[in-house]
């Protein structure tokens, strides 16, 4: 269920979990040998373990495993809390294909993802490269860069709602100094999504920057020195030494950015309510509207499964493209 409430913290900690899967050798083997605990103690341990895990497992079943099954079943019905439930077979999925709003939401989400993922990656990596040096100044700036991450999406949205105000907002006033007549941002269907992307990058890059900084420290300085002695310039050093050295982290960050991007909701809900002209209706926003606004929970579940599928496909593509196997450790 922790996956339900989409927060930066989860985003920050996920890599550790994923990396663990392939990482640790089976360290238990040794214990199973000579000094294996006597039978009575082993039984006691087994019972305690299940008692310790009981509540997490129950909650996990109630708010994750069972809900996934319910969502799948409901996606074949017209469930709406009120009224009788009717089975529709695959009608929801068929209607989806013919639903123009679904395609609008999908297109908007794809547009957001297409802008947000590369931009988020480049900003996080370049700031990390900039701060990858051990000095007091670097630590201070790390803190300053990270500050936007601390605030909630609501606080961030309010701040940007004010910054992006067409007449009095800081951004258009500053553009005015250079004689640029800034657009109406959130009230302009051409610019609203772009404004939301920029805001999201601003709000989130600090966390990924910290993860990249950790990875950069893991690249052996000897490799950089060897490259420099071989006459590599800064770009060659980055491309041939740093990039392969942090490939695994890059893969994870791209994954996190993708998962976050496909589920974007808060910003669109808070700043534009999907407008203007539906230009910022995202898939999750559409699911929210259908499920909790129109109470078409069956249909909303069907959309959420399509989204699930899309995220899975892109995760697989990312696994192919970023290919973390090239990492030197």
């Amino acid at each position: 269920m922790s996956a339900l409430v989409d927060t930066p913290v989860e985003v920050q900690v996920l890599p550790q979990i994923v990396e663990e899967k392939g990482g640790r050798p089976l360290r238990r083997k040794r214990d199973r040998g000579d000094h294996r605990p006597p039978k009575a103690i082993a039984r006691q341990q087994s019972v305690s373990a299940w008692v310790f895990l009981a509540i997490p497992i129950v909650l996990f079943a109630a708010f994750l495993l069972i809900p996934v099954v319910i969502a799948f079943v409901l996606s074949f019905s017209d469930y709406s809390i009120i009224g009788e439930l009717k089975w529709l077979g695959i009608d929801n999925y068929v209607n989806l294909i013919q639903d123009p709003f679904f395609w609008i939401a999908l297109r908007n989400t794809a547009y957001y993802t297409l802008l947000y993922v590369p931009l988020g990656l480049v900003v996080a990596l370049s700031t990390a490269l900039l701060l990858h040096r051990s000095s007091r100044a670097s630590r201070i700036f790390r803190t300053l860069f990270y500050i936007p991450v601390v605030s909630s999406t609501v606080a961030t949205a309010s701040i940007w709602f004010w910054l992006l105000n067409p007449q009095h907002g800081m951004i258009n006033v500053m553009l005015g100094w250079f004689g640029i007549d800034g657009p109406a941002w959130l009230y302009d269907s051409k610019w609203a999504m772009i404004a939301i992307v920029v805001m999201s990058v601003w709000a989130g890059f600090g966390a990924n920057m910290i993860i990249f900084l950790g990875a950069l420290q893991g690249v052996s300085p000897d490799l950089h020195e060897a490259a420099r002695l071989d006459g590599a310039n800064a770009w060659q050093d980055f491309w041939n030494v740093t990039r392969p050295g942090i490939a695994k982290t890059t893969f994870l960050i791209v994954m996190l950015l993708l998962i976050g991007a496909f589920q974007v909701f808060d910003q669109a809900y808070l700043l534009t309510k999907g407008g203007p002209g539906n230009s910022t209706v995202t898939l999750v926003y559409y699911i929210y509207n259908k499920g909790f606004g129109a109470l078409q929970m069956g249909y909303a579940s069907a959309i959420s499964f399509v989204l699930f599928l899309i995220i899975m496909v892109f995760s697989l593509i990312n696994a192919r493209v970023t290919n973390p196997k090239g990492e030197r450790e």
């Binding site: 989409d6 969502a71 409901l74 959420s304 699930f308």
Partner: peptide, 20 residues
């Protein structure tokens, strides 16, 4: 099972969790 669950996007369980 815990690990696998991390792959499920939160949006999928949102409506059923509400129902539960």
């Amino acid at each position: 099972v815990f690990l696998g669950s991390m792959m499920i996007p939160g949006i999928v369980t949102m409506i059923p969790s509400f129902i539960v």
